[in-house]
Design a protein around this nucleic acid. Structure first.
Lengths: 341, 341
DNA sequence: ATGAAAGCGCTAACAC
DNA sequence: GTGTTAGCGCTTTCAT
């Protein structure tokens, strides 16, 4: 590949394009951003010069000068959870045609890391922030309150938000599932979930679930928690353990579909009568379930829609600032599948 | 929450901290970056002022002035592939303690989108770029060549790279799997994969697989391709279709573990004799497989290690520029599992 | 150990 | 339709 005149490795600037095209920097800038009136002739000249030089604009300088950054910070606990990539894709799809760009930060469910990631993001002065959850450290909360840009807290509506909130009520989701299970006649019910105090949404689902059971005068018969490892495998193991410990249990409520799927596979393998003798349910409505031999009962967490609504709020307010404080509660629906009788 | 003196929504600047602490902007800057000698007393004053004001530095201005950006662009085809989040976590883990930050861009396997994402990233003048694959549009390749920062192409080593390359040989991986299958005595072999011309690594695996078979005088008995939808479900459906069409087939090679897992579940459900009558193998070594009743034969794609090696190269060269052009080929290993006799 | 001046590469605002 | 000027908020460099 032959080297262009600019053979020193110095990055190209507007000035280089300006000189190469014989047009002022300002006009070059206008052409490159499609702003203001530029004659077709100059336009051509400039684009030609930019292309042959291989000029890539410096957004850092542009952002500093214009006080505008087309970035939206998206802060989520994990990428390996399957749920968050889906939220992300909802966000991306909407931002795609707004000129805004998502930038992802991952917290690993750690409030300290969330605070660091948030600080890092805000120091780039993004046009908005989308952040998972309502629970944040005092420092994070202060930063969000003072960010001076739209903030959308997603996934969860059970609690007060800093600004806009888009999500579902996990408490209610848990309650509804409890009601459905009780209505189906199950009475000895076990819960299997993650040992993660920082997963507030799973915690709220369990609280709601207990409330729902309590309403029918029932309490959980057994519980089992795990942390780390392959969720599918853990689901198997926990199910095996619980069935061994509490043989007469008649329903297993899993805090997520992956461990639920592991449990389902185990039960089918053992030839257990599902849903006759033993009912099963998970949470999330992940696509994976469609490939299993039996459809696990679950509840759609509206992941993509949460992403797209959140992105819409940010995009709308980036375009013209409003008062903020939007609250959007989505309604998850129980998918009974084949594992509740 | 009470408002601080700065009640106009103007973002805080170094100057605000400087005034609040009675110290020059320069010294404030030094304190905030831990650079140069600052007396403990001033240090305290400054930090105190910054904290109470809630000052967040403006990295845009900082980057412009210092010509240094602690960002590393990471460009991958997809987040829902399970493989890429693992690569990412390898990258993050290494960058964590280097002061560099990964910024992710997703291409959806589209060269045009890759070019746009790359352009966008380079316009932020990152300290390095990690990009999946060796195949890029002419435009992308030109940008990579002229970026003036370390570029690491990952996942694949079958072809020439722009700068550094970290990955495995998918062609060889396919060949090795073919050899193992033939050695186990299977002869009527089917391939099931994605209908994605843009997935060059899957294509190379298939090419290598065919080469491996050809060496034993065998050609593929049947093939089946899919696109979109739940991979697990597609694996089921394709397996069903192929077994119906070619009942005497004795081995199914899947282009990835998700469809392989779907196929395995289907076969077990139908009570087929795996691996006696019918052998199965996938590719990737995803964690999910551990939860299945039978272990699918597969090949570890070294995802996390690819990520960490790539990050190490970028970090090393960000610290002190070298000649570049590192080539690291990792060696995937066949995991025979329970589905090859 | 601290401060002053210059300037990073671009765009807003205003001429012409 | 095009050019000029000033300055975005920091850091570099040099002075003290």
């Amino acid at each position: 590949m032959s080297r262009s005149p600019n053979d020193t490795r110095r990055p190209l600037t507007l000035r280089d394009v300006s000189e190469a095209s014989g047009v002022s920097e300002m006009t070059v800038s206008r052409v490159l951003r499609n702003r203001g009136d530029v004659s077709e002739a100059t336009r051509e000249k400039v684009l030609e010069a930019a292309r042959t030089l291989g000029y890539v604009p410096n957004k850092i300088a542009g952002a500093l000068a214009s006080q505008r950054v087309n970035l939206v910070g998206v802060i989520i606990p994990s990428l390996s959870n399957l749920v968050f990539p889906e939220v992300l894709s909802g966000i991306s799809a909407v931002l795609e045609d707004t000129g805004l760009q998502p930038v992802v930060g991952v917290t690993d469910y750690s409030p300290e890391k969330e605070e660091r990631v948030l600080y890092e993001m805000l120091s780039w002065r993004p046009s908005g922030v989308i952040i998972a959850g309502l629970e944040h450290s005092a420092g994070s909360r202060a930063m969000l309150e003072n960010a001076g840009v739209p903030v959308v807290e997603i996934m969860d509506v059970d609690g007060p938000g800093v600004d806009a909130v888009v999500g579902i009520s996990h408490r209610r989701a848990g309650r509804q599932m409890a009601e459905a299970i009780v209505a189906a006649g199950y009475r000895k019910i076990g819960f299997l979930g993650t040992k993660m105090p920082e997963d507030h949404r799973a915690r709220k689902r369990l609280e709601g679930f207990n409330e729902g059971l309590a309403q029918a005068g029932i309490t959980l018969t057994d519980t089992e928690f795990y942390s780390g490892g392959s969720a599918l495998l853990k689901g198997r193991e926990m199910t095996e353990a619980m069935l061994a410990r509490t043989p007469d249990i008649d329903f297993l409520y899993y805090s997520n579909d992956m461990i639920g799927a592991g449990g389902l596979i185990y039960c089918l393998e053992k030839g257990l009568d599902v849903p006759g003798q033993l009912g099963l349910a998970g949470f999330n409505g992940v696509e994976l379930l469609a490939g299993l031999p039996r459809q696990l009962a679950t509840m759609d967490a509206c992941r993509r829609e949460i992403g797209s609504k959140a992105a819409e709020i940010v995009a709308a307010r980036a375009a013209n600032p409003g008062p903020g404080g939007e609250i959007i509660e989505l309604e998850p629906v129980i998918q009974r599948g084949d594992t509740i009788r």
